[in-house]
């Protein structure tokens, strides 16, 4: 199958920071590829290098065999970009923005208006086409950015945190739209720190931390890699202190998950009796308890040593470069 994106030893070095450290990967045409990592891991810098916003310090990146360093214009003809923050003109109308993007991408005059109408209808903004973008909500702007990125029917779509900060309904709509585009053949490069989003949408994911890719595989294979560790989710009434649970026998780690605790254990069947004993001794009612299959989040935690809900490095956990890459 033909390669859509090729990255070899791509590196971005700022005066005091090595933002991206010699990453390499290939993405096939039509693939839905997820690029996961916490804030500051190097996701946006990578996407910026692949879309021409910033230049790589070292390494090579190609879009459909067009080297971004030597044939940037040709490479950019094939991509659509939805950045994490709005790149649209607040002073212009939704219609004006789409038409301007169409002009920038060389969409023929006779096609521009038809395409703008189609896209604005797709993202449910046609009725607001004459309104200034500055008056739009974050979700509406995001939908419009997607429409603008698709105006020239790109073969590859780069999306940087497309659902961050959106309400549930808007996030679902955008997710549905991206999946539909991929189904129609568009290659999607998605960066996100929402692991469930990547799990549901992506055929393959790479996990980046501290500028390095530490794992790359299908979500299912990454989950399988963490199967040695199991989890039990339990909720008590009244609530208990996290530290008390950390001391339980067979429990390796505890994470707060909403009103529940997620206990990471080697063997659920061995740990369960201790949890019941703990509840009994402390006169706690177990509101709910369930054993969990490994999730992409578990794989992420194991591989990066990061808590996804916190997106910060825990002192006691190992550094990412100490973890063996899975690819």
């Amino acid at each position: 199958m033909e390669t859509a994106i090729t990255v070899q030893g791509l590196t971005k070095r700022y005066p005091n920071v090595l933002a991206v450290d010699h990453i390499s990967f290939e993405i096939l045409k039509g693939e839905f590829f997820g690029f996961l990592g916490p804030n500051g891991a190097g996701k946006t810098t990578t996407i910026n290098m692949l879309t021409g916003i910033t230049k790589a310090t070292e390494g090579k990146a190609s879009i459909l065999n067009h080297n971004l360093a030597t044939e940037p214009v040709e490479a950019k003809e094939h991509i659509g970009v939805v950045p994490d923050t709005s790149n649209l003109y607040d002073e212009m109308t939704a219609w004006g923005n789409i038409i301007f993007c169409a002009k920038l991408h060389g969409v023929p005059k006779e096609r521009r208006e038809k395409r703008a109408k189609e896209l604005l209808e797709t993202v449910n903004l046609y009725d607001r086409r004459s309104d200034r973008v500055g008056t739009f909500s974050r979700g509406m702007k995001k939908r419009l950015m997607i429409a603008a990125a698709l105006v020239h029917e790109p073969e590859i779509l780069f999306m940087d945190e497309p659902t961050t900060g959106l309400d549930v309904q808007s996030a679902r709509e955008i997710r549905g739209l991206i999946r539909e585009l991929n189904r129609m053949g568009t290659t999607v490069f998605l960066t996100t720190h929402y692991l469930e989003e990547a799990d549901v949408c992506c055929q393959r994911v790479a996990i980046i931390a501290n500028g390095k890719i530490i794992a790359m595989d299908t979500p299912e294979k990454l989950k399988l890699g963490t199967q040695a560790q199991q989890a039990i989710e339990v909720s008590f009434d009244p609530a208990v202190n996290l530290d008390n649970l950390r001391g339980l026998s067979h429990v390796k780690d505890v994470v707060v998950a909403g009103d529940k605790f997620r206990l990471y254990v080697d063997d659920s069947s061995e740990a369960l009796p201790f949890i019941f004993d703990f509840a009994k001794q402390n006169q706690l009612k177990i509101v709910s308890i369930s054993t969990l299959k490994p999730t992409l989040e578990d794989a992420f935690v194991k591989l990066t040593g990061l808590r996804p809900e916190l997106m910060t490095i825990e002192k006691e956990q190992m550094k990412p470069n100490e973890v063996k890459a899975n690819d």
Binding site: G52, V73, K76, T85, N87, C101, H105, G106, A148
Partner: peptide
């Protein structure tokens, strides 16, 4: 500052 310059940078234009 607003990020709209990035729209130009990602377009196929020198």
């Amino acid at each position: 500052r607003t990020g709209t310059f990035n729209l130009l940078l990602t377009a196929p234009i020198s």
